[in-house]
């Protein structure tokens, strides 16, 4: 399964089609839940198999960190209650806030402007079917986090909304919102690694023991 993830990641530049994934994996059953289940099992298996390698793990995290801190990722993992936007990660215009479930507030909900796909043209709202911020209970802040702080946070289910490392790997490998970072639309830069390389680094960090880089 982990090989399958990697294979999928290698084509991560193009939009991932869930229905196809479902068919490939397990026939006609609902794709999302199944893949998620499969992922957990796969990562656990590989985690057992992998060698604990503190240096390699930390190296992998530092490589992935460049992606975590890239505007495409960090803009939705802000330190405040508002998303960020733009290549300079300025606070999102129009006083947009996280809201109860991370999808905005009142007349300023994410999907009121952000469509399922990018609106064509410079400075037009980028789109994604899952457009949202982390929930206020587990805001998963990247902005301003050092590598050590971010790694510790990702390992602490108390601060990830109960997400395990496996689920975090799943998010970076499969969530359309994350995949969308590599199809950023007009005028927006892609993260510094390919999606495949990014997932490989996150996976390597976890498999090699999820060690926290020195502060």
């Amino acid at each position: 399964m982990s090989r399958l993830i990697l294979k999928k990641c290698s084509i991560g530049r193009s939009r991932w089609h869930w229905p196809i994934a479902g068919l490939v994996l397990l026939g006609a059953r609902p794709a999302l839940a199944l893949v998620s289940f499969e992922d957990k099992a796969a990562v656990k298996k590989t985690a057992v198999k992998a060698q604990d390698d503190p240096d390699g793990s930390r190296r992998a995290f530092l490589a992935a960190y460049k992606v975590f801190m890239h505007p495409r990722c960090m803009n939705c993992h802000p330190s405040g209650d508002a998303p960020l936007q733009g290549e300079d990660s300025h606070v999102h215009g129009q006083n947009v806030k996280r809201g109860k479930d991370g999808t905005g507030k009142y007349a300023l909900k994410c999907s009121n402007c952000h469509q399922d796909k990018h609106v064509a043209g410079e400075n037009m709202p980028p789109g994604n079917p899952n457009w949202r911020l982390p929930s206020p209970e587990a805001p998963l802040i990247f902005q301003g986090r050092s590598p050590a702080a971010l790694a510790s946070q990702l390992k602490d289910p108390g601060r990830t909304g109960g997400k395990t490392l496996e689920q975090i790997l799943h998010h970076v490998a499969e969530d359309k919102l994350v995949l969308g970072c590599w199809e950023p639309g007009e005028g927006r830069a892609k993260p510094p690694l390919s999606h495949g390389d990014f997932v490989r680094e996150v996976q390597a960090w976890i498999e090699k023991g999820a060690h926290v880089p020195p502060p």
Binding site: Q94, N95, K105, Y106, A107, L108
Partner: peptide, 10 residues
């Protein structure tokens, strides 16, 4: 504050 959070987009 609710009004700011709703109406600042207009």
């Amino acid at each position: 504050e609710d009004i700011d959070d709703c109406m600042t987009g207009n």
